[in-house]
Amino acid sequence: MIPINNSIVSGVALSEINGETKMLLMKRTKGSFWCHVAGSMEEGELPWQTIVREFYEETQIEVTDLYNGQFLEQFYASYSNVIEVIPVFVVKCPANQKVVLNDEHTDFEWCNLEEALKLAPFPAQHAVFKHVWEYFVDKPINELFRIKLG
């Protein structure tokens, strides 16, 4: 049997950068690959609280506009022999959102979908980015996806 881990959440930040919608990708220090924000839930945290905390810790972005991404990122992690099932959140940031990275990342880029797909190495990431782009950029965001903070 392969264990399933569901203690991690991820989030994609969107911002109007110089008038064009972009998503935030960061280059991880460990592994040196491009990714979106992700992290492990701490005891007593709800998933949405974890992604709010992780965004602040990793980027200094204060989340005020949060959505259930309506997507589960899934992949097999061969190094730990675990199937990861990760709920995805979407963060709408103010225009030209400032980013301050912590030591988990060495660089960041605000990308359109095509640029993000070129940078991100994993098929699960591609699925996340395509889904987020379709339901949060190409279409008006469904207000049923909004998460009330607090």
Rank of each mutant, 00 (worst) to 15 (best):
P47A: 11
A13T: 01
F71M: 14
F33R: 00
Y76V: 07
I61E: 02
E16T: 06
G150N: 14
K98S: 15
I51D: 14
I141L: 03
K98D: 15
I147L: 11
V128L: 06
V132L: 07
V9L: 09
L119T: 00
L14E: 02
K30M: 11
N68C: 09
Q125L: 15
F55H: 05
K130F: 08
L66E: 06
G39V: 01
S40K: 15
A120Q: 07
K22H: 06
C93A: 12
V100P: 01
G11Q: 08
L24V: 01
L46G: 07
I51V: 15
V9Q: 10
P3M: 10
A13W: 00
S10A: 14
R146D: 02
L149F: 02
E134F: 10
N81Y: 12
P47R: 12
V132Q: 04
T59M: 05
D65R: 10
D138G: 03
E42F: 13
F108Y: 15
L25Q: 03
Y76S: 05
F55Y: 09
E134C: 07
Q60A: 15
L149D: 00
I83K: 13
I83T: 08
V91D: 00
F71P: 05
V63Y: 00
F145D: 05
V128A: 05
S80V: 12
F71C: 07
N68K: 09
E42C: 13
